[in-house]
């Protein structure tokens, strides 16, 4: 019987693992292999060049700039997005005033409406969001500067995406705007599963909102927050940051390399400059950064598991 059980398990796992190996693991290995060649991506011929691409990468100023920006994305974006999402989710689910005869905890007035509103950006593709914000940031006739003018701040008319000191932050703000809704919904779902009697007990002990949040909600939500953190970090290192930078920024990647990120640099090297091998080298660096980020989050986030 024991033998039969394994056959059963293997039978179920072969197909998904095979697909995973073919479409995920194999391309990864291939990319790593190509990073040791001089493949252009435009002809089938290439030869091995050993560590040349890696040596070149270490001397490449633009690579280091991209890396710095990507790391900044990976640290700042999850921090801001998740804090904001936690705050909003808490207010929606447990931040309301106690009403006579109502449940022990409830959200602020109109919370179900807010929940939908926050989720709106999530239904828009990131490309559309980027385009909309590119218009909003137009220094001449865009929404942001028009609002500044309307409230009497006509003297403050930043160039936004045209200013190397602001551009990166302007791009990050767009990513926060477009992703925070998803995490609000995610955390709301998590909070809904926290038993109400815990809150009741805390209230009986005279806990305020802040105490309730830090002593009850956050610890019981920790697993969800941690997963969200990894997810958000990968998003910030990967596809989403590419889309916004590629669509919105000067150049793209500018002004003066102030917004370039690793994924953008991979793309430019592979598809603009015909240096696919060097691009895979940067891709390998990106893979290392991504894995290191995930490992760091798991490690730092290690906690006792609470069961309730």
């Amino acid at each position: 019987m024991r033998h039969g059980k394994y056959r059963f398990v293997v039978g179920f796992l072969t197909l998904p693992l095979g697909l995973y190996a073919l479409f995920v693991v194999w391309p990864f290995l291939q990319s790593i292999y190509y990073s040791f060649t001089d493949w252009t991506g435009l002809s089938p011929e290439f030869k091995m060049v050993g560590l040349d691409n890696y040596r070149r990468m270490l001397d490449d100023g633009i690579f280091w700039k991209s890396l710095r920006h990507s790391l900044l994305f990976a640290v700042v974006l999850p921090l801001v997005t998740i804090s904001l999402a936690l705050f909003l989710a808490f207010m929606i689910n447990a931040g309301g005033r106690r009403r006579r005869g109502g449940p022990a905890v409830s959200g602020v007035r109109g919370s179900s409406f807010y929940k939908i509103v926050y989720f709106f950006p999530q239904v828009l593709s990131i490309a559309i969001v980027s385009l909309l914000f590119a218009f909003a940031y137009n220094p001449d006739s865009g929404a942001v500067n028009s609002i500044l003018r309307a409230v009497g701040l006509g003297g403050v008319q930043p160039l936004w995406l045209g200013d190397p000191d602001l551009a990166l932050w302007a791009v990050m703000a767009v990513l926060v705007w477009s992703t925070v809704g998803f995490f609000v919904v995610l955390f709301s779902a998590g909070m809904a599963s926290i038993p109400a009697d815990l809150y009741e007990a805390a209230l009986l002990d005279g806990a305020g909102r802040a105490t309730t949040f830090f002593r009850i909600t956050l610890p019981l939500l920790w697993d969800t927050v941690q997963s969200g953190w990894v997810y958000m970090g990968i998003l910030a290192l990967g596809a989403e940051s590419f889309a916004v930078v590629q669509i919105m920024t000067t150049g793209p990647g500018g002004p003066d390399y102030s917004t370039t990120v690793l994924v953008l640099y991979v793309y430019q090297k592979a598809f603009r400059d015909g240096q696919a091998a060097y691009a895979t080298t940067i891709g390998v660096a990106l893979l290392v950064v991504t894995l290191a980020f995930a490992a760091a989050v798991m490690r730092l986030g290690r906690r006792e598991r609470l069961e309730y």
């Binding site: 391309p27 990967g238 696919a276 691009a279 990106l286 991504t290």
Partner: peptide, 14 residues
């Protein structure tokens, strides 16, 4: 999730 990061490349490398 991290697949798309270098997936773009592997699409052509095949």
């Amino acid at each position: 999730v991290s697949l798309p990061a270098i997936g773009a490349l592997t699409a052509v490398s095949g």
